[in-house]
């Protein structure tokens, strides 16, 4: 009696999960397995160049080539520099805005929330296009504005590219992160804050000494998600690439992998770079899930 409904449940489950699972295996698992397989081979033109190309098994040779390539290593250094600049600016900014919005002084909270969150509705590519135009001399009112304030700044010249990319990402994500941090602030039990106010602590002190420590897990989580996102950096530098002299075709790891596949037709190298990137992203994401699992268990 008990086994029949269970078997029926199994059949229904197969019906409900089957379609997803089939597509998942085909378009998530299979590409990774295939890329891992491709990453073990390399192509070499054979003989005098008329015989076409031959495929050789190289084991982990492509991984060695990728890691030994200064361009690939540099792309990770770029991400590191990007993260070092981006996290304090974007998460720091989002935190300040969330704390301001959470203070009794703030007015029109819904209006500010909506306005700050608005860029998130804009696709990343369009955000990048808008900003590239705002970086273009002659077209950009921002450059004119800076000039009238006595600041001469060229967004697209050497040494400024990192800042220009960070600015686009900040514009896209600061409101999003602010809303999450603001939600965490709103979840702080009011009696905890009440104790602070009774003790006569100032708004600033309460923000720094009581609120910030209490939402530290939310901040840490946002930082980790941002790092994972940074690893995937592609759209913004790809769009700036044509306009800026500094951003090369292998500026970020994703761009490096794409160049290997399409400019150099080196599928082995492209596959190994992709696998390395996927692994690194997966490890970081895994840390995040461990972290948030611990957080939800009091």
């Amino acid at each position: 009696m008990a086994t029949r409904p269970l078997r029926r449940q199994g059949r229904t489950a197969a019906l409900l999960i089957g379609p997803f699972l089939l597509l998942f295996l085909t378009f998530s698992i299979a590409p990774l397995v295939y890329a891992a397989w491709l990453s073990l081979f390399t192509e070499r033109s054979s003989g005098l160049g008329f015989g076409g190309v031959e495929t050789f098994f190289t084991g982990l040779g492509n991984y060695g080539r990728a890691l030994g390539d200064a361009a690939f290593r540099d792309s990770f250094l770029v991400i590191a520099a990007y993260v070092l600049l981006y996290i304090p600016v974007m998460i720091g900014g989002a935190l300040v805005l969330a704390l301001l919005l959470d203070s009794a002084m703030a007015r029109a909270k819904r209006f500010f929330q909506l306005g700050l969150f608005l860029p998130h509705a804009v696709p990343g590519l369009i955000a990048a296009i808008i900003w590239v135009y705002l970086y273009t001399p002659g077209l950009s009112p921002v450059i004119d504005l800076l000039e009238s304030a006595g600041v001469k700044w060229s967004f697209l010249s050497a040494g400024h590219a990192l800042f220009s990319v960070v600015n686009i990402s900040t514009w896209e994500w600061i409101g999003y992160n602010m809303v999450i941090l603001y939600a965490a602030l709103q979840a702080i039990p009011r009696d905890v804050l009440e104790a602070g106010t009774v003790d006569g602590a100032s708004g600033l002190r309460i923000a720094l000494r009581i609120k910030m420590p209490l939402i530290r897990p939310a901040i840490a989580l946002n930082v980790l998600f941002t790092v994972i996102g940074a690893l995937q950096l592609f759209t913004e530098p790809k769009v700036i690439y044509r306009a800026s002299t500094e951003i090369g075709s292998s500026w970020s790891p994703s761009m490096y992998a794409m160049r290997a596949a399409f400019d150099n037709h080196d599928y082995g190298l492209a596959a190994s770079a992709s696998i390395l990137l996927a692994l690194l992203g997966a490890v970081l994401s895994f840390i995040v899930t461990r972290f948030s699992a611990r957080r939800t268990q009091p």
Binding site: S28, P31, L32, A35, Q232, S254, Y267, A270, A278, G281
Partner: peptide, 13 residues
């Protein structure tokens, strides 16, 4: 866990 943009090239291949 695997970031979406790390999937693009493997899917293409």
């Amino acid at each position: 866990l695997v970031p979406a943009s790390a999937m693009a090239l493997p899917i293409y291949l």
